[in-house]
Computed example of a mutant assay.
Amino acid sequence: MTDRVVAVVVAYNRRELLQQTLDALAAQTRAADAVVVVDNASTDGSSGVARRHDLGPEVVRLERNTGGAGGFAAGIAHALEGFAADLVWLMDDDTIPTPTALAQLLRAREEYPGRPALLASRAVWHDGREHPMNTPRERPFVAPELRRRAERAGAVPVRTASFVSLLVDAGAVRREGLPMAAYFIWNDDFEYSARLLRHRVGLYVPASVVEHRTKTFGASDVDPGERFYFEIRNKVWMFAHSRAFGLAGTVLYGGSSVRRWVRTIGRSGERGVLVRAGWRGLRDALAARPAPTTRVLADLPVSAAVELVEDGAARG
């Protein structure tokens, strides 16, 4: 029986790019079985673009902007509860899949002798360079036999990945729950993929290619300005409260994050802005734990689906 794949696109005020994303989904050699567009309270007519598209996606319009974190949590829950998805294919509205992107992810999944919790595509910028914002982190200390299994499927074992074309197994979602909507933006995909992959297999599939059409080329640590608040707050939340890492992982990735923060501030032309934003992020992270995703999305049309997924995961 063929697995049911539901693509989830989170959109916010980028109607032209959303049109291109939907065009690319329509051109897949292996089409998704359904497409859900989560419109994060866009004001530019993004919902209308989606509703008029020949692909016929279902549009979930949120009355307020929940950020990428809330949008993906809402979309995953709706895909599982509204469409009985076996696999959920996640992407932002600036992700343009090449025609074989989904087919290559499914090929690698079929050829791998096991059941990966997620598979990630290779993200490139519009000029073909590999996008530094979306490079998955390889899993350290992989046993040689497990690495060979991945290689035979044309893949690399990874520990984390981004939401820029991520194929997630519904069974893993039902056991681990949804992304943390309280994060709003930044590190939600880092935390979620790490949580899914703490005791499971994740694969990076270079043959599956998508374009990530950001305005500029670079990683997220290039002068983030006020958004540095979310980088600090969410990372502290993750290392303090998430079950994504054990002690060794917290030390390893926590130390790497601190070095990155120092490097980001040192290179910035707005050091004062970053220091103040980072201090607010640290203060807020220490003042309170992240609110549960059910509470963050409680007033939205997806709340019932979110509760079903989260309650099921809590019951184990």
Rank of each mutant, 00 (worst) to 15 (best):
M1T: 09
V5N: 02
V6Y: 04
V8G: 02
V9A: 07
A11P: 02
N13S: 15
R14W: 01
R15F: 09
L18K: 12
Q19K: 05
T21W: 06
L22C: 00
A26Q: 01
R30D: 12
A34W: 05
V37C: 06
S42V: 11
S42A: 12
S46P: 13
S47H: 03
G56A: 03
G56H: 10
R61P: 03
E63G: 15
R64M: 02
N65Y: 06
T66E: 15
G68S: 14
A69F: 08
A73Y: 00
G75H: 10
A79D: 05
E81A: 01
G82M: 06
F83S: 07
A85Q: 05
D86E: 11
L87T: 11
D94E: 04
T95D: 14
P97H: 00
T100M: 09
A103C: 07
A103Q: 15
L105E: 08
A108G: 13
A108M: 07
A108D: 03
E110W: 02
E110C: 03
E111A: 12
E111P: 07
S121W: 10
R122L: 13
H126W: 06
R129W: 04
R139V: 15
R139S: 00
R139N: 08
A143W: 06
E145I: 09
R148W: 13
E151Q: 14
R152D: 05
R152C: 07
G154F: 06
A155D: 07
A155T: 09
V156R: 10
V156N: 00
P157T: 01
P157S: 10
P157R: 06
A161L: 08
F163V: 07
S165K: 05
L167H: 02
A172N: 10
A172M: 01
V173G: 03
R174D: 07
G177R: 06
M180F: 04
N187E: 04
D188V: 10
F190Q: 04
Y192F: 14
Y192M: 02
S193T: 08
A194T: 11
R200A: 15
G202N: 11
Y204W: 15
V209D: 10
R213Q: 13
R213G: 00
K215F: 14
T216P: 05
S220D: 12
P224Q: 09
G225M: 05
I232R: 00
R233Q: 09
K235P: 09
M238P: 09
H241E: 11
S242G: 04
R243W: 12
G246D: 15
T250S: 09
S257R: 08
S257C: 08
R259W: 08
T264A: 12
G269F: 02
V273G: 08
V273L: 09
R280M: 04
G281D: 02
D284A: 01
D284H: 07
P290M: 03
T293Y: 11
T294M: 15
L297T: 08
L297E: 01
A298S: 15
D299M: 05
L300T: 14
A304K: 04
A304C: 06
A304E: 14
V306C: 11
V309T: 11
A314E: 13
A314S: 13
